[in-house]
Design a protein around this nucleic acid. Structure first.
Lengths: 362, 362
DNA sequence: TTGTATGCGTTATCAC
DNA sequence: GTGATAACGCATACAA
């Protein structure tokens, strides 16, 4: 197989120097019409495609922004608890097409990131890995700026990378780590949600579901406690059911309470995914939602609209988060984070059927 | 701002040569324990991040696969016909979050592409543009293989690129163009769908909606005609309503037929997006679906499950298409397409409410 | 307007 | 086990 042609090959064929070839592509107006034509013809005949690595090396920039995610998220369970089949079409032709698995929170943020990149003509490098320092550093070397989802990446690695290119961290509380931060107001969202349950639905017995494995979840639980206390109710010190969807033995507490009919009036879940799994579990056991127990989520993923009952939740402005990250990176292009930016975006309660609100008008 | 540190800086600081630094990262076992440690410390202190451009240049590969889409798809209309508001939550916080706009066909294919890349530890470069030869060539220079959605890209450009790296074209009928092809069986899908409408619902008056702007649509219309003819009915020479969602003056024929109550018994649409817009239009005019007129789509996007009535459609194995593309590219890595692969994937009719089938059990 | 020469940061091939 | 050194393909200051 012939070697990929280079500027040298094109130059030789067109009878010009390599500089002229380069000019023809980068600054066409600087080159005489006839010369340009000759170069373009030669390039076409040879099948010349400029090498971005060489260009990036010479120019000092790659022209791409990066987005790093974690494999772990891919390993998310596909089945509801207790083997309850997800509602809707089984789709044996396309096992990846499950609204419970896509689009999720990260996917919608990524969507916003993509849109903003595209509008700016920026290339986007998507990468994922275990979160090891090595794999993050790997991407970092390929891009002019990097956004990272929360995960097991050692903070040291991120700080390390942030010394060389701007880095945006999603959903991690801002600290003085040299990273830019894009977060949402989890506490306020949870306060509003609980306020709705207590104020509008007059519920007085609420339990929190979910293990506090991420800063987001921890903040949501904090907001939950604040709101419950503010309503004059007893704020629990810990979640009622500390289920982590990534682990086995899920919803043991909820299940046993359901068996004894001792469930609280509301199960406030740390995420939509948790809430949907809880809905499955309750449905399998014949516990009516919202009549016997109200269930709420957090995030606002699409699957919540497909569930029955539809899921009351708190929606994050996911696409906006992604867009904002790109804007921050572009703003700081070329320079590492001297003065890191911190952004706290608002969230909004979305009332649907699972809290007892009436179905939305069609 | 200090220059990004290089192997030279690390080598100097660690008191070794640059070769040793390189070995430390690429073949740690070839380097003495103590030396390795010294290098790693120096790298950490300096904030060293290997430059992928330089690496790619020296090594001859970028280590990334590309996926090219078109801006045009982003400019898709967000509103239903006649200003009919889409059902569901208005979401003023996050205007990009509309299930009618995401995830679409391309997004689910992309999803599959991502999953396969991730599982293989491949970086993925996403890019989009007008489809001009320049922008496609641009990406091509950055990757070891490229997949492209159908669009206005000059075929010559793709062939040009395909001479240097493997290229997969989605949803374009295979021709001898040096490209690999991943397509679905549009004709069979449409035949099955029409067979269901005619055979199971006993409909004898069917109209096709959509302009034949893409090869996919043209094949679907061809399949429609075949099936209609096979049922002993008159096969139209052209679509009943040649609406192109990308253009104004949409559904003029459907609208006027609706006004005169002369609609056929079924409107078979070229895509889900068209079908959803038709549902909006009919709802706004008070035409009951499926009682007065049956509506069907094609693709199997998520929004079809959120519509009321839920949308009967033909589902493409979108994620599988994306995964397959990556597999093809990896298989041909390093070499341009000597013997292009052609893949035709099966599709499946998904029966929902808009054709008169009963709602799926919850 | 076009050609010459140099640097960009790594990898890899040699010697040592 | 480690150190020189030559590519890799392009952009660009400078010269012509």
């Amino acid at each position: 197989m012939p070697r990929r042609p280079t500027v040298y090959d094109v130059a030789e064929r067109a009878g010009v120097s390599i500089a002229t070839v380069s000019f023809t592509f980068r600054q066409p107006e600087r080159v005489r019409e006839s010369t340009r034509a000759a170069v373009l013809v030669a390039a076409r005949e040879l099948g010349y495609v400029p090498n971005a690595s060489a260009r990036g090396l010479a120019h000092g920039r790659t022209g791409a922004l990066g987005l790093y995610s974690f494999d772990l998220m891919l390993a998310a369970p596909q089945q509801g608890a207790d083997g309850a089949a997800p509602a809707g079409d089984a789709d044996d032709l396309d096992p990846d097409a499950d609204p419970r698995a896509f689009p999720l929170y990260v996917d919608e943020v990524q969507r916003g990131y993509e849109l903003e990149c595209w509008q700016r003509g920026q290339a986007l490098l998507l990468s994922s890995g275990s979160g090891s320092g090595a794999s993050v550093t790997e991407v970092a070397g390929r891009v002019d700026g990097l956004a990272v989802f929360p995960g097991p990446t050692p903070v040291g690695t991120l700080e390390h990378v942030a010394r060389r290119i701007p880095v945006v961290a999603f959903s991690i509380p801002p600290v003085a780590d040299g990273l830019h931060h894009v977060t949402v107001d989890n506490r306020a969202g949870m306060r509003d949600l609980v306020g709705h349950l207590v104020g509008d639905h007059d519920l007085r017995d609420l339990g929190f579901v979910g293990r506090l494995t991420t800063p987001d979840y921890a903040e949501r639980f904090a907001g939950f406690r604040e709101a419950v206390a503010a309503a004059g109710l007893d704020a629990p010190a810990e979640p009622l059911d500390p289920t982590d969807l990534a682990e086995p033995h899920r919803f043991e507490v909820v299940a046993s309470l359901a068996a004894e009919d001792r469930l609280p009036r509301a199960l406030v879940c740390a995420s939509d995914q948790l809430a949907l799994a809880v809905l499955d579990l309750l449905a399998a056991r014949g516990v009516p939602v919202p009549e016997r127990v109200v269930v709420t989520g957090f995030d606002g993923i699409l699957a919540g609209r497909l569930a029955r009952p539809t899921l009351t939740t708190v929606r994050q402005p996911m696409a906006a988060m992604g867009r904002l990250a790109v804007q921050v990176l572009v703003r700081h292009a070329g320079a590492p984070a001297e003065e890191p930016e911190s952004h706290l975006l608002p969230v909004r309660v979305v009332r649907r059927e699972s809290c007892g609100c009436p179905p939305a008008l069609a």
